[in-house]
Computed example of a mutant assay.
Amino acid sequence: MNLRPKRRPVPMIPIVSLIDIMVILLIFFVATTTFKKDKTQMKIKLPESKSLGGSASAADTRVAISIDEKQNIFLDGKPVELEKMAAAIGALKQKDPGVKLELQADTTAALGVLVKVYDALREAGYNISDMPTRIQRAAP
């Protein structure tokens, strides 16, 4: 009769293969985070404060391009034909090179008219992304 307990073998953990897996995961995470690009969905121009050092000048006032519910186009309150829109905007830009525009369109304005106005703006040398747009509700 053998009263001595049997020695159990000490379990061995294969640490070398765990280190290999950890290094591969580290390389994967480093590589994937460097390929991430910041994508902005919209451009936002933040408001400026008069009391915090920003001063409003005459160039900050905007000239409105308005489209009413009958698809009539107005540049600074004056009616303009769609075919002469680019020439009128170009003349306005020559008169005051720092002039800024904004588009005010009625909710019932046709998309085709808006696209033609944008084409006229590009033809006159304006960047569409710098021009704010306001949609107006139709009068009841």
Results as ranks from 00 to 15, higher is better:
1 M>P: 13
2 N>I: 06
5 P>D: 09
6 K>N: 13
11 P>E: 11
11 P>W: 09
17 S>Q: 06
18 L>V: 03
20 D>Q: 05
23 V>N: 06
27 I>G: 09
28 F>P: 09
31 A>I: 12
32 T>D: 11
38 D>I: 09
40 T>P: 06
41 Q>R: 08
42 M>P: 13
45 K>L: 14
49 S>I: 05
51 S>I: 15
52 L>Y: 10
53 G>F: 03
53 G>A: 03
53 G>M: 04
59 A>E: 13
59 A>N: 11
60 D>A: 00
61 T>F: 12
63 V>N: 00
64 A>Y: 04
65 I>M: 00
65 I>S: 00
67 I>Y: 01
69 E>Y: 06
73 I>H: 00
75 L>I: 01
79 P>H: 01
82 L>Q: 04
82 L>S: 01
83 E>Q: 11
90 G>N: 14
90 G>H: 14
97 P>Q: 12
98 G>M: 12
99 V>T: 06
100 K>G: 03
102 E>C: 02
102 E>N: 01
106 D>G: 00
108 T>G: 04
108 T>C: 03
108 T>W: 01
109 A>I: 03
110 A>I: 08
112 G>E: 14
118 Y>V: 04
120 A>M: 05
121 L>E: 08
122 R>D: 13
126 Y>N: 02
127 N>R: 09
130 D>I: 03
133 T>E: 07
138 A>C: 07
